[in-house]
């Protein structure tokens, strides 16, 4: 084993150069050249300022905005430098309490789509289900003084279908939808 140490060391260094520096370096260069927007985080710029990423959810608490899912990332949720889920198990009393509170906060009676009351795995889920969006149309419309139909039309417009028609689930990007709402107001 010990006679193999030198080859081992040389192999480690060689692989470090090839797969640790050349590989990520080359991929970075290629990505920056080919897909600069994606490579840098699909950032959204409004009025010359970055206001978020199309892929990263952010907090919306106002009545006039569609609310995202509860988030366990960071202390206040949607901390994009500390991703993570609640990691609460199925028999967790804390989970039940949190869901109960979320339901009260959303002011919904009756059945609720699961995603709207549960935290995502990343804590940065940019989406809610179309059903969850639908539940909020009335509130948003009222707060904004818009017609239900107008808001519903926007929701429909921002509802993405499953990828290739069958992968994943249909979804609504909360940030993009809310930005669209704001544009309507302006």
């Amino acid at each position: 084993m010990w006679t193999q140490m030198m080859p081992a060391l040389r192999m480690t260094l060689l692989l470090t150069v090839l797969t640790g520096l050349i590989y990520p370096g080359a991929v970075t260069a290629l990505c920056q050249a080919l897909f600069p927007a994606q490579a840098n985080g699909s950032l959204i710029v409004r009025n010359g300022k970055v206001i978020g990423s199309a892929l990263i959810g952010q907090n919306f608490a106002g009545e006039g905005y569609f609310h995202p899912r509860p988030s366990a990332a960071g202390a206040d949720g949607y901390d994009a430098a500390a991703s993570g889920g609640s990691n609460l198990g199925p028999t967790s009393r804390k989970l039940m309490e949190r869901v109960k509170q979320a339901k009260v906060a959303e002011g919904i009676e009756g059945p609720v789509p699961a995603d709207l009351l549960t935290a995502s795995g990343s804590g940065l889920d940019p989406h809610i289900s179309p059903e969850s969006a639908e539940l909020q149309i009335a509130r948003v419309a009222k707060a904004r003084g818009m017609s239900f139909q107008a808001v519903a039309a926007l929701v429909r417009q921002y509802t993405e279908d499953r990828d290739l028609g069958f992968l994943g689930e249909a979804r609504v990007n909360v940030l993009l939808l809310n930005l669209a709402l704001d544009e309507v107001r302006q």
């Binding site: 609640s86 990691n87 995603d115 549960t118 995502s120 795995g121 889920d125 809610i128 689930e169």
Partner: peptide, 9 residues
């Protein structure tokens, strides 16, 4: 059960 799951998936 959507706790800990992403809507897109």
């Amino acid at each position: 059960n959507m706790e800990g799951k992403e809507v897109r998936f």
